[in-house]
Design a protein around this nucleic acid. Structure first.
Length: 552
DNA sequence: CGTACAGGTCTA
DNA sequence: TATCTAGACCTGTACG
């Protein structure tokens, strides 16, 4: 397949390098006016091509604005970050005077050109040379296939992320405002408490005999609760729930509504919703494990409470799909644990564990698996471990080994080769080549070492889960495009939201059932890509709905 | 007066 | 006898 490397030359020109041979970037180069790039890309997309560029966030938004979609890319910023940490890679092959520059390159997350710095650090980097270094590092790796899949999936994720920001999540401001009004009353002036909160406040101040209390101040609130004789050390709702005092119900209600106003109230609507769309930036690879991060509007912690305002356009539907128990299934697959895969054959893995005789109840199964993946050694989940270890030795063995490696200060990696970071100074685990971390008492160091082991234990599972989800997204993106229709990305069935193990597709109503089928096919394909013939299922809950809230 | 952190709450 | 993984982002408050 042809690769075409795009290089910016100032603001007005783009240099296009066509590499004929995979090992050679020295193919023909031509120069285009920046304004001619969309037509050029559209033209070249008629046959298979992979666009190589420094960073998807610096190229793709403008192409999407011009109505151009690309099928494949190689995002050098993301692949650099992957290769620099992968234990499958000889790091000497990536070294170069620009390595630090690539390390430090940050994604662009604003569309307002006036906000851009005049000099973009990306313009001092040479994509041709970096592409060559990365190809050499891949070629010399023991696991070129896995890394190539990981880079392709990560890059496809970058395309999805840009397309989701471009399209936006359909959002009905009127529905959202009605929801706020019902709970809080009309929108107050800036800096004024809404009527709904003010009403609760009066009762709270009376109940705790604190006429000037501001419940939004944790310190003040804690002193007021203690003055009322309540035995509390913090003011979390979780803690307050247990208390028996006439002021508590109003206080809990106040906290809930106050949180709604602060996080997803009128200011949020003003800031993040425009033209009927909520637009956040999704950041593939933004979390060390490989999960996505986001910025803008708290997209990855969108409360269930406001999801009724996410409503598909007239004549369109949302297809909402999520994987049941993604991470335990991934663990079964990557450890090739036949017994756990057998339990996963059921659409509910935890019930499958009960049926297989490993544990007595679904609740025990869930608690035990969470403990295995998060490192819970105490209490109920800790007591479950010996039985799980006996029944699922390969699965439990894999996470136990990852935990011990972390405690020794070693790097662990996901199935496709994403490496964990080196333990920071102070983590208690001594990084290779670093002097031993002596700070604190023996107990402190032990605690930090175990905490790092919990991190690496979780890293291998959460990170491989993120890889499964990337493969799912990448395949689904192409399936949606092939479903047909005409026009640009947002005029056809397209992804509008992704949250670790859940996707939302916005699609014309007539295509919704076909989309649901493609979502399932893509999940099956992701399983084959990662685990080959190993029999592990990834059953989905799929709903075709008008509002996101109706999916649960 | 601006920045940094603590505390809290939402997500998978 | 015990709240364990990864984030974003709000307000209030301490600090320089």
């Amino acid at each position: 397949m042809d690769r075409i490397v795009l290089v910016r030359r100032g603001e007005r020109e783009v240099e296009v390098w066509r590499s004929i041979d995979e090992d050679d970037d020295g193919g023909a180069s031509t120069v285009l006016a920046t304004g001619d790039l969309p037509d050029y890309v559209r033209e070249r997309e008629s046959s298979p091509v992979r666009w190589v560029w420094d960073d998807t966030t610096r190229w793709y938004p403008a192409l999407l604005d011009a109505g151009v979609r690309v099928e494949r890319c190689w995002d050098l910023r993301l692949s650099h970050a992957l290769l620099r940490r992968s234990p499958f890679v000889d790091q000497r092959l990536l070294a170069g005077e620009q390595a630090r520059g690539w390390d430090a390159l940050a994604p662009v997350t604003a569309t307002d050109a006036a906000l851009f710095p005049l000099t973009d650090p990306a313009d001092r980097l040479d994509p041709i040379a970096e592409h060559r270094r990365q190809q050499e590092a891949l070629a010399a790796s023991d696991e070129p296939g896995r890394l190539a899949l990981l880079i392709a999936a990560e890059s496809a994720g970058a395309l999805v992320a840009a397309e989701m920001t471009h399209a936006g999540l359909p959002w009905r401001a009127d529905v959202h405002e009605a929801l706020l009004a019902a709970l809080l009353g009309p929108r107050p002036a800036a800096g004024v408490r809404p009527a709904g909160l003010e009403r609760l406040l009066t009762g709270i101040r009376e109940a705790f005999a604190a006429p000037a209390l501001n419940p939004d101040s944790p310190g003040e609130l804690l002193r007021a609760l203690q003055a009322a004789g309540l035995p509390v050390e913090d003011t979390r709702s979780w803690t307050l729930q247990e208390l028996d005092h006439p002021g508590i119900p109003a206080l809990l209600e106040y906290k809930k509504l106050s949180r709604l106003v602060q996080a997803n109230g009128w200011n949020w609507l003003d800031t993040w919703v425009r033209d009927g769309r909520f637009r956040a930036w999704f950041l593939p690879g933004g979390v060390v494990t490989g999960r996505w991060a986001s910025t803008g509007g708290g997209a990855l912690s969108m409360p269930l409470q406001v999801r009724p305002a996410a409503v598909a356009d007239d004549g369109w539907r949302f297809v909402v799909a999520d994987v049941a128990q993604l991470e335990p299934r991934v663990l079964a697959g990557m450890s090739r644990d036949q017994a756990m895969a057998e339990a996963a054959r059921s659409s509910d893995l935890y019930s499958g564990m009960v049926a297989g005789g490993a544990v007595a109840s679904r609740a025990e199964a869930k608690l035990g698996m969470l403990g295995a993946m998060y490192g819970g050694t105490r209490g109920e989940s800790g007591r479950m471990m010996p039985r799980l270890t006996r029944r699922y030795p390969r699965a439990i063995g894999l996470v136990e080994e990852a935990a011990r490696a972390g405690e020794r200060g070693e790097v662990v990696h996901t199935l496709l080769g994403r490496g964990s970071p080196f333990p920071a100074r102070g983590s208690g685990a001594d990084a290779p080549g670093e002097p031993p971390e002596e700070r604190g008492s023996v107990e402190d160091r032990d605690r930090r070492r175990r905490a790092w082991g919990r991190f690496t234990r979780n890293f291998v599972v959460q990170g491989t889960g993120a890889e499964w989800a990337l493969c799912w997204l990448a395949d689904l993106r192409n399936r949606l495009w092939r479903l047909g229709g005409t026009g640009t990305v947002s005029e056809r069935p397209h992804l509008v939201f992704f949250l670790h193990d859940e996707v939302v597709v916005h699609a014309p109503a007539a295509l919704a059932d076909a989309v649901a089928e493609e979502v399932r096919q893509a999940a099956a394909e992701a399983g084959r890509l990662l685990f080959g013939g190993f029999p592990i299922d990834f059953p989905l809950d799929v709903a075709v709905v008008r509002s996101w809230a109706d999916a649960d």
